[in-house]
Amino acid sequence: MAIKQLVGPSGSGLTKYLTDLYENTPGAVMLTSNPRAHITYLRTTVEEELAFGLEQRGVALDEMRQRIERIAGALDLQDLLDRAPNQLSGGQTRRVALGTVLILDAPLVLLDDPFAGLDPASRQQLAHVLHNLDADVVVAGHHAWLSDMDPDVDAELLGEEALLQLPEKVPSSHHGDDSHLHFPDLVGSQGAGKRRWWQFRKSQANRFEIGPVSLSIPRGGVLWLRGANGAGKSTLMKALVERDKRIGLMLQDPIDQVIDSRVDQMVPDAQLRSQFDLNSEEHPEDLSQRALRLAQFASVIG
């Protein structure tokens, strides 16, 4: 069994290549770039989500349990099996989505940017799983993660490789005690909160809390929050917004911030739309993944 790695910039045809291969290869399975598209959110636990595809294929119960145990061990999902699918971090959601695809034991596995959003340990773990699959694997992405971890895996380039060139740092005009934004004793939490009137089920027993953490953010500078998948980075950033409503928040999934039916409503600033080459009259959900991410960013900084 072989692993093929495709690398290219946004718009180079990576997803189209995988989609064409998927549509023309009977029995193939494909992980799209949106991990939430592979989770039904109709099941109450991660374990039931992993079983969903096997149920549709009429897999016997004993074999189903064996496959779930195997894939949970391979992707480090054991501690998440009883968790509600909507209470996972972005990286955890991606690992579960990978599980729903790999558990099907298909002869050809197509993966669209599977390493995005994974911490270094999870990337190493996924690479190990892919090398031990009894299947042909095609991995597409914007970075040659497999080659970084295993020099024997070659990367085929689609389009022209673009080098990242950052502009010079903008000097801060603030001095003294006002040169930092201080947020003492931040506490973020999710799960087990008060449910809305339309949420009929009881509160989930799972509750996650991070903090208290004190952050000092330099004006005109960058503060990098690092941590493993599920450590609480997004939860802490949401707590920042709750502390100060003037803060703009860019979520992991751009579709979560689409509330307008036209790009010019989502991004009112004409200069930003021009800078990011955004079509004013398009619906945000009709944009390419690249354009939607840029529209999301423009809406936040605008």
Rank of each mutant, 00 (worst) to 15 (best):
S12D: 04
S172E: 01
M149C: 00
G117W: 09
E48D: 15
S280M: 09
L166N: 00
L278E: 03
Q204K: 12
A295P: 05
V138E: 03
L163A: 14
D148L: 06
P212S: 06
G27V: 04
V96R: 01
A228E: 14
L251I: 06
D260L: 01
F208V: 06
L126H: 02
I71W: 01
S261E: 15
D119H: 07
Q165G: 00
F208N: 10
G211M: 05
L18H: 03
L61V: 14
K238Q: 11
V153N: 04
S234D: 04
L14K: 15
R243T: 14
I39E: 03
K233R: 12
S280E: 14
G117A: 10
L223E: 09
Q265F: 07
D134Q: 13
Q66P: 00
E48M: 10
Q66N: 08
Y17T: 15
V267H: 04
R123M: 11
L225A: 07
I217W: 12
G188F: 01
L278A: 07
P284V: 07
Q204N: 13
L157V: 12
V187G: 05
P85F: 09
D286T: 12
Q204E: 14
D82W: 00
A140K: 03
H143W: 03
G91L: 10
G141R: 08
G230E: 02
H174Q: 12
L215R: 12
N229P: 06
G73D: 11
N206I: 00
V170R: 15
L111F: 09
V29F: 04
R262V: 06
Y17R: 11
L292S: 05
P107H: 05
A116W: 00
G91Y: 04
S299R: 11
R95F: 03
R195T: 09
T25R: 11
H174C: 08
T44P: 01
G232A: 08
G188L: 05
I39M: 08
N206E: 15
I255D: 11
R65M: 10
L88V: 09
L88M: 06
S234H: 02
I39K: 02
R67H: 08
R70K: 12
G220K: 10
S234I: 03
E161L: 11
F183C: 10
S203W: 00
D286K: 12
Q296W: 01
A162W: 12
N206Y: 11
R219G: 04
Q56L: 15
D82C: 00
G53H: 07
K233F: 07
S33I: 07
D244N: 13
L61I: 12
K4V: 12
T19K: 14
I217A: 08
G11M: 11
S12E: 07
K194L: 02
D136W: 01
D150F: 07
D185C: 01
Q125I: 00
A295W: 02
D185V: 00
T44D: 14
S33V: 07
L108H: 06
S288E: 10
R226W: 01
R43D: 11
W198Y: 15
T235W: 04
L104S: 02
F297M: 14
D178H: 13
